[in-house]
Amino acid sequence: MRTGHFKERTAQLVALSDSKVVWSFAGLLLALVLAAPFLIGNYQVTLLVSAMIAIVGAVGLNMLTGTTGLISLGQAGFLAVGAYTNAILMMDHGWPVWLSLPAAGVVSALVSLLVGVPSLRLKGLYLAITTLAFAFIINHVILYAEWLTHGPNGIFVSGAKVMGVDLQRGKALYYLTFGITVLVVFAALNIQRSRVGRAWMAIRDHDIAARVMGVDLLRYKLYAFMVSSFIVGIAGALISLQIRFVNIDVFALILSIEALAIIILGGLGSIAGAILGAIFLSLLPEAIRLFFDAFADTNSSFYTTYVYEIRGITYGIVIIAFLRLKPEGLIGLWRDVRKYWSNWPLAY
């Protein structure tokens, strides 16, 4: 238990954290992640890149679903828009990657208005169904607008060079993703404690009360949609850079469910939770593979045929188990541990 802990200046109240321990741990973590590509193998670097992309996407979704309380089952759609925008601008129009990456976010944010505006009157389940419908419509548009998206053939993404460095290769991609992740996380942390973030939380907790207090629901819900989709669009663009190929199969419905699983697992509305959840869930398939390695042959036909189903079942079990046993998610678990640690040997 900390004592003698007073806040005397405004700067102390709005600080991200007033604890030196937290800052030094964050610095240590940052240094470790920065040094990681030199310490671990290529394969692990690829895994870390996927995990960081998942963090970007999860932080984006968390703004919409966790902070504002608007449930979205259409994340795969926004990711697809971002990935395709990046791929089309880079490959068909020759844009440099440092322009096409933010453009992917902007286009995704604009597209989100298409689903955002009709959804303003809806909430909860109705919104979930509309966003689901949106994801299907996007998928079909991509599949049938062949003049723009090359339809079912997909697009190969290559040659993302900035000053002669290929950003799609090992360390360069790692540091690009890392930079964007840090930016997004800090932006999200700052938005959450601004006027906009507080308005979002007010809408989530009680929309009528928020309206009565003067929160413009229309404006702030649209903000939530746009900011969230901007970030998710960038995550989509990063996916296209990492896997070097965009195709409609990459953005199946299971991706939307995976995204929701991440933020539920981490703890709704918490950015640290979204990060924990993203890391946990992107390393989970790896853990499953190791598990199968230990007990059975991973090249066996059962594993290779059903790898998709096994992943799906794990996501489902993770969602159900956390909602049932620990609705506050991993971050709630962490808070419990911290409380137990600082109060020990007393119960509270």
Binding site: I254, I257, L260, I317, I320
Partner: peptide
Amino acid sequence: VTVGLAVV
């Protein structure tokens, strides 16, 4: 939970 149940 029903979404999770669905994938399972």
